[in-house]
Simulated scan of single mutants.
Amino acid sequence: MSHPTPGVPTWVDLGTSDLPDATRFYTQLFGWEADVSGEEYGGYTTFRLNGRAAAGAGPLYGEGQPTAWSTYVATDDADEIAARVEAAGGKVLVAPFDVMFQGRMAAFLDPAGAPFSVWQAGTMRGADVFDVPGALTWNELTTRDVEGSAAFYGSVFGWVARESSMGGLPYIVWEHQGATIAGMQAMDGDDWPDDLPPHWMIYFAVHDCDESAALAQSLGGRVARPPTDLPIGRYAILDDPQGGTFSVLQSANA
């Protein structure tokens, strides 16, 4: 088994207040199959696309914890990353711990307040499929501190922040070892309510953005931002029935 490249987003999962209903919603929206683990894993569910791991979901464990998607960055050493996070001004939310033989994980807050996690692969390497309809295609940090975030993630993962643009607006592209791996957007303007915290947005690829947005709504979700054209394709921001926010992206090359 080949392990994912350290420093690259490798997995996303959903912590939800209603795992059965979230499973209903996402399996119908993306055509995923739900692979439910045993009691020793708390019913953690791996969503598979044509048999390959695409994403995961599990129940909420912390009181007051909101339903939300999480981004995991691959690492060879979760403990070393935890030390780097603290040294760079971030916060360790969940110290590194073993998930049986599956791997080792930890959860953090960056200095601006955006949560993220790391995954040190064991028998479970992360996602097996990317960039096809129903699979993860992009991870994007939205933050009110672009400069500070560039310094933080550069220190923790060795990422390089490159200035770019998206739809005529400034945009940051994260590069790692010469490869483009993620993005960063400044939370400036009226599109970003004051009570919306910095976060990592995840994008799933779809065949047709408009159809996916309409289907999500028919399944009990909400269209938070209607389908919109960008140079890279057409996207929409959606909420699942429990309030978990994610995006769908129809590639311009589709």
Score class of each variant (00 low, 15 high):
179 A>I: 08
95 A>Q: 14
198 P>D: 09
202 I>R: 03
226 P>T: 14
25 F>T: 08
93 L>F: 11
244 G>T: 01
13 D>Q: 00
153 Y>G: 01
125 R>L: 11
161 A>T: 04
60 L>A: 04
199 H>S: 15
26 Y>G: 08
220 G>Q: 06
98 D>L: 05
230 L>K: 12
235 Y>R: 01
42 G>P: 08
210 D>P: 09
74 A>Q: 05
65 Q>D: 12
85 V>K: 00
17 S>D: 14
200 W>L: 05
176 H>T: 02
192 W>D: 01
51 G>D: 09
36 V>P: 02
58 G>T: 06
182 A>L: 00
223 V>E: 15
172 I>A: 12
98 D>A: 13
57 A>C: 06
236 A>R: 11
29 L>S: 02
170 P>A: 00
10 T>K: 06
10 T>G: 06
58 G>F: 07
183 G>P: 12
161 A>G: 05
165 S>D: 12
4 P>Y: 04
125 R>P: 03
26 Y>T: 04
191 D>W: 14
114 A>D: 15
75 T>Q: 06
170 P>Y: 01
134 G>D: 05
46 T>D: 13
169 L>Y: 13
107 A>V: 10
216 A>N: 07
54 A>G: 05
125 R>H: 11
122 G>M: 00
131 D>V: 10
204 F>L: 06
234 R>H: 01
47 F>G: 02
135 A>Y: 07
92 V>E: 05
244 G>E: 00
233 G>L: 01
201 M>L: 12
247 S>I: 02
93 L>Y: 06
237 I>Q: 15
40 E>V: 08
249 L>H: 13
142 T>Q: 15
54 A>S: 13
195 D>L: 13
171 Y>G: 05
4 P>T: 06
153 Y>W: 14
8 V>T: 09
155 S>E: 15
227 P>I: 03
233 G>M: 04
156 V>D: 07
188 D>L: 12
123 T>R: 14
83 A>Q: 14
141 L>G: 03
192 W>S: 08
103 G>P: 02
207 H>A: 14
235 Y>Q: 10
113 G>M: 09
135 A>N: 14
243 G>C: 11
76 D>H: 07
234 R>T: 05
228 T>V: 08
201 M>H: 11
21 D>H: 14
34 A>Y: 09
130 F>A: 05
119 W>H: 01
228 T>M: 12
175 E>L: 02
125 R>E: 14
59 P>E: 06
40 E>P: 03
